[in-house]
Amino acid sequence: MAQTIAPAVPSAPPPDPAMAELLQSVVDTARAIFGAEASSILLLEAAADELVFEAVSGQGQEFLVGRRFPAGRGIAGWVAASGEPMVVDDLHDSTSFDRDVAKSTGFVPNALMAAPLVHGDRVLGVLEVLDPSPQARSSLSELDLLSLFARQAAVALHVLTTHAPRGTEPAAPEDPARAELLRLLAEARRLLEE
């Protein structure tokens, strides 16, 4: 725990289409890897002490993006604060955790996996996978896989934010790191759609 919590994105810049594409690609891929009903990325807004849904794949995709809730709450909150991944199963009879959040979002999962998006000692947010396939539930190896994937996503997020184009500057040649990332994203998308 005790990571430095910093906003993953500078506050109030115009939305970066590459960022949106990256986050959507991450949740689409996570959902495919785990055969899940849904996957989402919540980014931390330190100033507001809130987690914000930035990308959703599957259940809730249409209305969840932009929703926010207190960062200290629930499993996602614990994951962000502790910097540790978590998998839970058998949530159906639980009145707990993000249930109030889940109810407001219209989807109550029975199983949930969550891993922090960490770069260095900063937590950028949380990657969640909801209702993964029964084969992919609650085991330590799934926890490892999710953590690996979340680490990769966090690196990509970091690259994108540090190489973000400045809105007011004249168009510069595309940053190679950014271009490479976008190429990989397009490839991942294509594979998922096949």
């Binding site: 540790e84 991944p85 978590m86 998998v87 839970v88 199963d89 058998d90 949530l91 009879d93 639980s94 009145t95 707990s96 955790f97 609650s138 085991s139 330590l140 799934e142 926890l143």
Partner: peptide, 17 residues
């Protein structure tokens, strides 16, 4: 791995770690 644990609201869940 897959440990049955106490959870909020007097319930229990399974979890790993």
């Amino acid at each position: 791995q897959r440990v049955q644990v106490a959870w909020l609201g007097g319930t229990s869940i399974r979890t790993s770690g």
